[in-house]
Nucleic acid binder design. Sequence first.
RNA 1: GGCGCGGUAGCCAAGUGGUAAGGCAGAGGUCUGCAAAACCUUUAUUCGGGGGUUCGAUUCCCCCCCGCGCCUCCA
Length: 466
Amino acid sequence: MALRFYNTLTQQAEIFSPLQDNVVRMYTCGPTVYNFVHIGNLRAFTSQDILRRWLRARGYRLDHVMNITDVDDKIIRNAAAAHKSIFDYTEGYTKAFLEDTATLRLERPERLVKATDHIDDMASAIHKLEERGYTYRSDGSVYYRIANFPEYGKLSHNDFSGIRAGARVDVDEYDKADARDFVLWKAQKEGEPGWETPLGPGRPGWHIECSVMAMKYLGETLDIHAGGVDLIFPHHENEIAQSEALTGKPFVRYWLHSEHLIVEGQKMSKSLGNFYTLRDLLEKGYSPEAVRYLLASVPYRKKLNFTFDGLKAAATSIERLRNYKIRLETSKFPEGSNEKMTERTRAAQNAFEAALDDDLNTAEALAAVFEYIRDTNTAMDSGEFRAGNVQEALDYLARFDAVFDVLCPSASAAGLSEAEIEALVAERSAAKKAKNFARADQIRSELAEKGVVLEDTKEGVRWKRL
RNA sequence: GGCGCGGUAGCCAAGUGGUAAGGCAGAGGUCUGCAAAACCUUUAUUCGGGGGUUCGAUUCCCCCCCGCGCCUCCA
């Protein structure tokens, strides 16, 4: 089954193949670094991480560009309030963003690019748009005239044909000829940061950075452009208008948009008190893997209802996966190999791949893994699962984890060393042999307090950290 | 109003024109010094409501109800 993605542009699932060879050139809209990213942002970035990993699993090489918006109204406002330059102000949140995404095990894109490093490129692009007659000036600012781009609206599927240039709307406030026109270059105002360019002093509008940086690094036509659904209009619509006006070529072949996350059934907002950053959740004691699992477990085009029950369920689900892996690694199985198990593994692998090929259906992919685990656990209990089947099962888990990446626990800061744990385990075994169960239980609870769980099995005691 | 997404068991959630995946939680059981892990059984005659098409619809069509997003810079 071929890899397919739902394309916002065509409103259909389409078979994916890159324009050139096996390299996927993709661009994703990164953060505006005026604050810590919240779990809604991270849902989108997690979807993109799953996308990245699955493309690689399917044999593609990636050239992925993500932008960091480090100049915009909110940044200017907040930096001024903090009495900092926008550079000092955004530096801290850029660093925090990189830390948070690393904590969530999100792969770094091949290129991370900042808007402020590309001011000249943007000014040139705007100048070129002026030459081509797509713009007009007003009070030192440059606007894009959407009336000159007939295809405007093709991504968001809005019909703007009724809007005529010259039908002035909110003239006093915006100085725009048309309500849908958008700013390419903002004239510098008193006390605001600005750049000297042939366009005059000012700063870029939001949309131009993505068009310019995407095409600078990836060429005039990208394979994939991804972001949250809220960016479809106006941001991505405007990117198309800018880019295609510049090149006359299709800007993006596959537009992928992830749905929003809601919290306990409601829109996440600071006023409702249900606004969370990753840092908030870690402080409450949840693991990064649990957050990652929850964000990844709902297919990206579905709204994700983020709940604390769900977060706990995610943590328990991860435990089940890890316990299974530990069982594979530590148990003794009968000699030989069972061909039926090999076939079962192959079927599970096929189901997993088919699910992700189908527009990254992560829920179905997880179902394939859990069904396999239940079946092989049963086979282990009955003795049908043989030593010769261990490696294929571990390989399957590895392929699962190459995408979901939740099996390896995050390093806990404190705790006992392995040697200390082993010593206590040995002491407890001796106490048990001597029927000193009081001491045995005492050691169990001591270790439990330090996050180490003991399990007595036929093959002896095994322990794991929580 | 326009465009778009969705309403499936206590919760999260997959799915298909042919009779409901998976996870979590709950109940009972096997195993166990206790526990853990694991397994087994059990939890939707039913997929927001009402019509229609069909041999047959949760899945297609129509209407209605409810929730959500976007419609000037929010993933």
